[in-house]
Simulated scan of single mutants.
Amino acid sequence: MGENVKYVTLTDDNFEAEVLQSEVPVLVDFWAIWCGPCRMIAPVIEELAAEYEGRAKIGKLDVDQNPRTAMQYGIRAIPTLLFFKNGQVVDQLVGAASKKMLVERLEALVGAEAA
């Protein structure tokens, strides 16, 4: 791992700057260390961060360490994946989604940028 991690570690403090003010669409993975399905999709999240570098931002927010943001978005089950565009939630998935499903959702957002 080390230096080549492409996703952004999101916190209550940087959420506005990193997500709400982002120039590109953002996928936020709300997760926690004790959550099995969260750990299952972690490698997929990391792959997407590398594949979409420059076109979309991928971030992970630990709900235990950042309860304010999790509460603000009504996160009750994890993993919850929220897709943001221009500071607004435009899509969401709850549970361990497949990479194919995530790619489809991201492509819809990124593709709309290019159009």
Rank of each mutant, 00 (worst) to 15 (best):
E3P: 07
N4W: 13
N4I: 14
N4K: 14
N4E: 14
N4P: 06
K6P: 00
Y7G: 01
Y7H: 15
Y7M: 08
V8I: 12
T9G: 01
T9F: 07
T9A: 11
L10M: 08
T11F: 09
T11V: 10
D12E: 05
D12I: 06
D13P: 03
E16G: 08
A17F: 12
V19M: 05
L20C: 06
L20E: 13
S22E: 02
V26M: 07
D29N: 11
F30E: 00
W31A: 04
A32E: 01
A32P: 02
A32S: 09
I33H: 11
P37M: 11
P37D: 10
C38W: 01
C38T: 04
A42S: 14
A42L: 09
P43Q: 09
V44Q: 13
I45N: 07
E47S: 14
A49H: 09
A49Y: 06
A50I: 06
A50F: 07
Y52C: 01
Y52W: 11
G54D: 02
R55P: 06
I58D: 00
G59C: 09
G59F: 05
K60Y: 05
K60Q: 06
L61D: 00
V63P: 01
R68Y: 11
T69N: 04
T69I: 13
T69S: 03
M71H: 09
G74R: 05
R76I: 13
R76D: 06
A77F: 11
I78G: 00
I78V: 01
I78N: 00
T80M: 06
F84R: 00
F84N: 01
F84D: 00
K85P: 08
N86D: 14
N86Y: 10
G87I: 04
V90F: 00
V90E: 02
V90C: 09
Q92R: 14
L93Y: 02
V94I: 15
G95I: 07
A97D: 12
S98P: 15
K99E: 12
M101Y: 07
L102S: 10
V103D: 04
V103G: 03
E104S: 13
L106R: 05
E107P: 10
A108K: 12
A108E: 11
L109V: 06
V110K: 07
V110F: 12
V110Y: 04
A112G: 08
A112D: 11
E113D: 15
E113R: 11
A114Y: 13
A114H: 14
A114D: 11
A115L: 15
A115P: 12
